[in-house]
Every structure is written in C-alpha cells, then in structure tokens.
Design a protein around this nucleic acid. Structure first.
Lengths: 310, 310
DNA sequence: GACGCTCATTTGTCCAGGACAAAACGTTGA
DNA sequence: TCAACGTTTTGTCCTGGACAAATGAGCGTC
C-alpha cells in the first residue's frame, strides 16, 4: 500500500513509476506483456519493482512518444539507441547569442536576483516586444532542451520560470489598457502545466492593441466556452507546450470549436499545434509569437469588411 | 479509448471521474463492489458511465475523507446527509464585511477590471499586510466555499484568482528587497494546483523582513531538498490547499524532513496542515498568515541565542 | 489519563489475462 | 494531393481474487 517513491536509489513500485513517467499502470503492465519491456523484478508479494535504469528508459520512451514515435518501434530499442533518437529530435544545439549564454549561466548557478535584473534590463533596453520574441522565447526553449538533456534540474527550471514570470507580469501590468479590439480570452487546457507561453502571448496581444482577459492555466472546456460568452470575447486563445498530448489537444479543440459560437475565433499556439499535421476546421494556428501581429491585422480587416458590407 | 469529458451534462467515463474526483479507478471499482456505490450505468460496451449526481456525491465523499472520515461510514449515506456533514465541518457561514460582498458580486458578474481596481485600492488603503490577512485570505475562502456550494463556476474562480494574483505580485515586486533573514524557499508539492496561498505567504514573509525565493507550484520532493541546499535557505515553506490529499501530505513531509539537513527548518501552512491531527517530527505548522510574524520572531530569537552561546 | 501493546476490521493497491474501440498506418484509386 | 478503406497497433476497460497497510477497539501498565 505504500505509494510514494523514496530514497535516492530505491527501486520503484508501479504507482511510483506511474507518477514519475506519466504512463498509466495499465500501460506499464500491457507493455510488459506485449513487448517484454519493462521487465521489473518482483518483491516478496509478487508486486512489480522497477529498477532505476528501467524507469530512466521509460522516461525517454515517454518523451519520444510525445514526439509522434510509436511504442512498437521504441520499446525493443536499447537505452543508447533511444538517446540517439532523442538527440536527433532535439536537433543541433544552436549557437547562442552572448546574452543567452549569460542567462543560462545564471540559471545553472541559481543566481536568481541577478537573472531577474538582467531580464528587467533587457525589457527596458529592447522593448517588451523584442524581449518576448527574441529573448524570452528562445531562452525558454533553451532551458527546456537543457532539461531534456539532463543538464539542469527541475528546481532550476522553476527558479528560471519564476523570474521570467515576474518580469513579464510586471511589464504586462504596465501596458494593459482597459479597452481594445479584439477582446481576447487566454488560457490553457486542463493538464497543461506550463504558463510562460500564455504569458508571452498575453504580452504580445496587449502590445498589438488587443484587450486581454487571462483565465490562467487549466480551464475545463465547458468553462472556456462559458467564459467566452460571459466576457463577450472575440477570440479564445489557447497555449500548448510541447509536452501536451497531441490526441487530447485535437479532441479538445474539436469539442471546443463545436461548443463555441461560430463568430468567436478559436486560436492556438505553442509547440503543440505547430507540430500537429492538421487542426480541426475553424481552429487557427498562430505561427509563433511573431504570428500574432499579422493574424490580428487580418482579423481586423475581415471584421471591418463584414461591418461595412452587411 | 475516448477519455476526455465533454458536454455540460454528459455522463462521465471512469477515467474522467478519476480526474474529476481524484479517486483512482481501482478505488471506484472496489467501492462499487463493496458498498454498492457508486453504481454507474453501462454503455454499449459494458463500460461504466457515471451520472453527474454520482460524481457530485463522490466529490463530497472525497472532501470528507480528507477531513478524516472513513469510507465505510460515508458511502452508505445520502447526498443530503453528506451535505449536512460538510456544512458542519465547514462551520457557519461568517457574516461578511461589505467590501467582501462587493468583491463576490464583481466575481459573479465577471467584472474583472473593476475587481482588480477594488483590490488595488484596498492594498493602498489598508497596507499590504492587512490586505493579505483580512481581505485576500477571507475572500479566497469565500470563493472556495461558494464553488463548493455550486454558486460560482470554475472560470469565475479563475478570473478571480488572476486578478488577485496580479495585484499580489505587483505588491510583492515593490517590497521585496535583495537580502534579509531568514532566507525562505517557498513552493508547493506536486499535485497542488492552488498558488494563491503561496503568494500570500510570500507577501507576508517579505513584509516581515525575510528574503523570499519562490519556486512556484509543484516542485518534486527531491528538487525541494536540492534547491534548499543550492540556495542556502534557512527555511523551506510549503503551502497546502484544503483539497490536497492528507496522506500524501504527511508522507511527503516525512520524506522531505529526512532529506533535508536538520538546520533547515520545514514549515507548512494552509488548509491542509491546519486540519491535520499531528505532523511529522521536525515539521512546523503555521497557524494562518498571522502566524508567520510570531514564528519568524521566535526563529530569530532561537538563532541569536544559538550564535551567542556556542 | 497517557501510553504501549495486540488483534480484528477496514481499506487501498496490485495482479492476471481477456476484450475491444479508437488511432495510426499503409494501400489503392481518383 | 487527397479521399476512402482494410489492417495493425495501442490504450483503456473489465472481472474478481489476493493481501499489506492503516485504522480502531480492547486491554494492561506506568
């Protein structure tokens, strides 16, 4: 009945592995039956006990699954082969501008206040738009990749996130005016843990003259539709990180499109939708933060045309 | 294979109920076997389909479980009887100051910018300390209770949370100095979704002259220990909402206490620990936000005594 | 009355292995 | 390039039995 994982190098129960890897118990068992991996030992009571290396491999598999690879192909491979695949899909480490190098250094040495100062300076120096698109976005990606390569730990990513969030929220508070068109409702779907993408989008939307109403993270679908109506939003914008399960994203977008009145636009952005082949009808995919400006322009054009020629 | 919950009044699959209620599939099935509740219908494929009312009742049961009651007693009861129990454990609805009434009205009518203005004014008028302890805290509880009674919807709570968060973060940014004693690391455990408690604590800690480093929500246990060492924290402060599973809280706190060097204090606060009978040795429970000041004072006393008489 | 012990009961998790829908894939034809 | 269709892969759900851990009750001791 003990559930939680404990000592550093202890072997884990099936529940603990479920938590660690995000793979359900059913999946862990059925993989073992079908592919022969994982092949946990058993304790005295016949319960599965997963050695650390297998958990590591499972985590790798999980990441590659999220990138569209399939279990039947991945599970027979060795940990090394999986590592190679992973490197390929991450791509070459891009050469860094100096300031990004500095930021990564500050993250790795936990110099949070210095990091925040650098970021704040960058906002003032470059302006919010360039800060978001050229500093924030790339940095976020760098940190994410460094985490995947195991170069930084979770808490270091958290420290980084907090600093960026503080700077961004401060900047947004300054520029957001009371009114504007269109009125944009921002949020993420349940399960999405990452909020920086949303915050960056809010910054750019505000800069482009839209009125932003953020619901924060993880709003249930029904509530998104209800909120859009209640706040009389023109657009509903959703942010997806790269880890968000692709199936769930597509399914939820379909449901949401159906639940939403047709005149309310449904836009989405982030690593999730950019990797998707095709989105449901009536769902618009923003191509990066830079795509927000042109998209808004087009929306306003269409709107004024519709108003002028009824 | 379809998983996600959908239309407003649709009945839910076992996976959806697991997500909604936090009760595992195994538990849902074994309760049905043992107590005859829940008693879901079946779809064409023989899969369980849970009507809304049963999900509602399960949610109630879940809450009461977290308060120390036991399944064998709760499950045979009717929804009404459970409601009575719930009311008892919530306590009488406290009479509201007028300003809280106004805030609740603004929440229910989705007047977000008005709400934010009111909150900002309150900060300036009453000072941050009184704002946090006398406005923010009680309001948060009111909103939570209103949600439990079904008076407000999830998205309305989200809108509220965003406004409070914005105001709090703005205020914290202004007061937080670079140094101070003790150095406090703040976060929540994985699974904790609510961040306002943490933010309020950060505000009070900062006001009391401590140096705050926030890790944001949901930091894994191992990373909390690592972060405390890396940032040379004096205290690790964790926030728990009332929904957080009591068992998990106690178990995690034990683990954490063991993983942390003894000279680093482990403090916790929020609805979770306040209801707990007894916490693990070496874990200190803050009694509300007002408890932070005295606790810090005592910590500083103990510290200076230890330094003076080595 | 506080504490420690044992024993019975309650409760959550785990297991096995079968079943089946939905997603992904591959092929064909327009 | 796209649509339609059969095949394979894959995740989730099912049943019902087993058992350890948590809880509570009863009892004796300090």
């Amino acid at each position: 009945m003990s559930v939680v994982s404990l000592e550093p190098s202890a072997a884990l129960s099936i529940s603990a592995v479920e938590q660690e890897t995000g793979l359900s118990k059913d999946v862990l068992r059925v993989w073992e039956r079908r592919y022969g991996f994982p092949c946990p030992q058993r304790n005295t009571y016949g319960e599965r006990v997963y050695p650390d290396e297998q958990v590591l491999k499972l985590r790798l598999v999980r990441r590659l699954l999220d990138r569209g690879l399939r279990p039947g192909r991945l599970l027979p491979m060795s940990t090394e082969e999986l590592g190679v695949l992973m490197d390929q899909s991450i791509g070459e480490a891009t050469p860094l501008p100096v300031e990004h190098d500095l930021a990564m250094y500050l993250v790795k040495t936990h110099q949070t206040s210095e990091l925040r100062r650098e970021l704040s300076q960058a906002v003032v120096r470059d302006g919010l738009y360039r800060f978001v698109t050229q500093t924030c976005g790339p940095l976020l990606q760098l940190v994410g990749e460094a985490w995947m390569r195991g170069e930084i730990r979770v808490f270091e990513e958290h420290l980084f996130t907090e600093q960026v969030q503080a700077v961004l929220r401060g900047a947004i508070a300054q520029i957001s005016g009371p009114a504007g068109t269109p009125r944009v409702l921002l949020s993420t779907l349940p399960g999405e843990q990452h909020g920086l993408g949303l915050l960056m989008a809010e910054a750019v939307f505000s800069l482009e003259g839209a009125e932003c109403v953020s619901l924060g993270l993880q709003t249930p679908i029904g509530d998104l539709a209800a909120a859009a109506l209640a706040k009389q939003a023109d657009l509903l914008a959703l942010s997806f990180s790269g880890n968000f399960p692709a199936n769930q994203m597509l399914e939820s977008l379909s449901l949401l499109r159906a639940a939403l009145p047709p005149q309310i636009g449904l836009w989405c952005g982030g690593m999730g939708p950019e990797r998707a082949r095709r989105l449901p009808r009536g769902v618009f995919c923003l191509s990066g933060l830079q795509g927000i400006g042109p998209a808004l322009e087009e929306w306003r054009d269409a709107r004024s045309r519709a108003t002028l020629t009824p």
